[in-house]
Write a protein that binds this DNA or RNA. Sequence first.
DNA 1: GTCTATATGTTGATAGAC
DNA 2: GTCTATCAACATATAGAC
Lengths: 213, 213
Amino acid sequence: MADEQRGRRGSYAKGVVKREEILERALEVIAREGYRGASVKELADAVGLSQAGLLHYFDSKEELFTAIVRKRDEVDLARFDPIDLSAASLADVREGYVSVVRRNAEVPGLVQLYSQMAVDAADVQHPAHGFFIERGENLRGMLASVIAARSESGDITDRIDPDALARILQAVADGLQVQWMLEPDVDMAGIVGQLFDVLVQAVPARTGDDRTA
Amino acid sequence: MADEQRGRRGSYAKGVVKREEILERALEVIAREGYRGASVKELADAVGLSQAGLLHYFDSKEELFTAIVRKRDEVDLARFDPIDLSAASLADVREGYVSVVRRNAEVPGLVQLYSQMAVDAADVQHPAHGFFIERGENLRGMLASVIAARSESGDITDRIDPDALARILQAVADGLQVQWMLEPDVDMAGIVGQLFDVLVQAVPARTGDDRTA
DNA sequence: GTCTATATGTTGATAGAC
DNA sequence: GTCTATCAACATATAGAC
């Protein structure tokens, strides 16, 4: 795990620290100013380095952006770290799912970066290929484990197997992002909330309004 | 409508015909050999023209690829032309939806092209921006109109409004494509079929096996 | 209408000074 | 570790011959 996060060079001490700083800064900038297939130079300017200076820490442009996406996930996951999945209620899962989507609507640039990278990473040669596969597996694994447990107790529809259900929840979130990039008025969180309530037969009391605005 | 399909130059007679020929040929090649952000030259070679010769028919690379995506839709829609939407049963809609997804699994290159373009077209400046907005509206309009009619008669869940439901069906299809590009084993048609059956409360007799393989 | 040739621009990557 | 300078490798778009 740690190995994958190191570049060829910045493997020790200060190098690693600086690297992380760069990635954090890059995420801020992209979140704020958007990402449209930015060049290394553009990003370098944004984080306060020359193009060569930035590439000192990464082997290539693709590796650089792969590291950024990785870092994004790392940051996002840290927010959910405290949650114990095995003890999570369905309402917890619902709230987690919806809140992630809601939060995405606040960082257009990151949504754009993610969508772009996800498509590019379809190429087996792309450095982020393996990452996106693993990421999907982890994401769906979290969903499916909770779903499967509740499914046995009859809380959840048994007309879709947990794996397919997890794929659907992932797909809806991803697909709505594309619709939302095209039309920012789309209420992603509200829609995924509705879907969750229908797929999960037992309707829990709504904890609040899902909508962003 | 016709205007949008004409380039600056090839506006008349033979030019238009040749243009359409180019687009059809491009679709074949992309469907067969894939698309990875291909350059104009690559496509030109594939369709048997020089780069300049190809750009003779289109104002720019972006316009060219926008025309290709447009053409793809045109071809696809023609296959469903005979269907009268106002008379369509729920089973018809289900079958149409599932079969489109099933067919996509046979043309990886086109899926890749579509996904890539959809992300790029998020940019308001992109020539395909308006096209993708319209396309989404049309697609969801078809779904929503049938759904709304059935919803009143109680065939469909009323816990999701027709618009949201249509967005969900669109999003799942798009999102699954990304998963499928990453992992070609994903059974897109099977999954969307299951989803449809759950969202539409009255389970129609399955007309057959949705799976591709 | 199609080609060859080329203008013009950008990119990612590297070499080498400091 | 970071910069400046430079490179080769494309890309798209256009000019002009045929």
